[in-house]
Structure formats: C-alpha cells, structure tokens
Simulated scan of single mutants.
Amino acid sequence: MSTSETARLDADAEPTWDDVRDLPPSAKLVAKVLEYNDTLTQSQLAEETLLPPRTVRYALNRLEEQGVVDSRFSFSDARKRLYTLAIE
C-alpha cells in the first residue's frame, strides 16, 4: 500500500497533490484543468484536455477514488455531473 493510499484511509486527512502523484498522466491533467477551472462537466473536461471522453471518465474515477475530486448533479441538467477539485 502506497503512502497516498494510507493517507486516504485516514478519514480526517485532507486531500493533497501527493494523492495525485502516483496516478496516470490523464488523471493529473484532469486535476490540473480542474485547478484552473472551478467546476466542469465530463464533456467540458474532455474538450479542455483534448482527451477522449472514455479517458476522462477513467481519470475522474481514479481521482474520486483518491478523494481529490468532488462531484454533484447539475441542477440545470440532472443527466450531467459537475466536478470540482477538492485540493486547496
């Protein structure tokens, strides 16, 4: 188990960039794009990163597993989810 995985198990641990360090490059890119853009949908992330939607979906899943991305349903379109970086 890596250090970042151990840190995630601690319920009081705040997410940090160390939690992103061992993730794939696509997840790092998505995290950086979310750092510069407050809240984006998956399709907006695919457009901003120039990554295929499937790759963005995989990256978001990995980021959510690490607890560094928060997601919620869009009020304007409940079919879409809005993603926000949880690292400060």
Rank of each mutant, 00 (worst) to 15 (best):
W17C: 05
S26H: 09
L63A: 01
S43I: 07
R57H: 12
V30L: 13
T41I: 03
L45W: 06
E47R: 13
V30S: 13
D18N: 14
R72Y: 05
L85I: 10
E48Y: 09
Y58D: 12
P25L: 11
T3G: 12
K32F: 14
E47A: 14
W17Y: 11
P24H: 08
P52Q: 04
T41G: 06
V56N: 04
R54S: 08
P24S: 07
K28D: 12
F75A: 15
D10C: 09
P24K: 09
R81E: 15
V68T: 03
W17A: 06
D10S: 08
L40F: 06
Y83F: 15
W17F: 10
S71P: 01
D77E: 06
K80S: 14
P24L: 07
T49D: 03
D77G: 05
P15M: 01
R72W: 07
P15R: 05
L29E: 15
E5S: 03
N37G: 10
T41D: 02
E14P: 00
V56W: 11
S4E: 09
T39D: 08
E35R: 14
S74I: 10
L45E: 00
S26N: 10
R8W: 05
S71I: 01
R81F: 13
A59G: 02
K28L: 12
L23T: 03
A11D: 07
R62A: 08
T16F: 10
F75Y: 13
D70F: 01
A27L: 09
T16S: 15
E14A: 06
Q66P: 00
D70A: 01
V69F: 05
Q44L: 05
E48H: 08
E88N: 05
L85E: 00
E48T: 05
D19L: 06
G67E: 00
A31S: 14
E65A: 07
E47T: 14
E48I: 02
S26L: 01
E14M: 04
R79H: 09
F75S: 15
K80D: 14
N61Q: 11
L51K: 04
P53T: 11
S43R: 07
A46R: 05
L40Y: 08
A13H: 09
N61A: 10
F73R: 12
E48M: 08
Q66W: 01
N37A: 13
L51I: 03
E88W: 02
Y36L: 13
E5R: 08
S43Q: 08
K28G: 14
D10H: 13
Q42L: 09
P52R: 04
S26D: 12
P53W: 02
K28C: 09
P15Q: 01
L45G: 10
P15C: 00
R72H: 05
S2L: 09
E48G: 01
T3I: 14
T39S: 12
T3Y: 11
T84H: 12
V68N: 00
L85A: 04
E47P: 02
R62D: 06
Q44R: 07
V30R: 03
L9D: 10
L45C: 08
K32G: 12
N61G: 14
V20E: 03
D19K: 01
P53V: 11
S4T: 11
D38Q: 12
S2P: 10
E14H: 02
A13Q: 10
V68P: 03
R54C: 02
L23R: 03
T49S: 07
L85G: 00
P52Y: 04
V69C: 03
F75N: 15
K28N: 04
D77S: 10
R72S: 11
L60R: 00
L9V: 04
E5H: 05
E65F: 03
R57N: 12
Q44T: 00
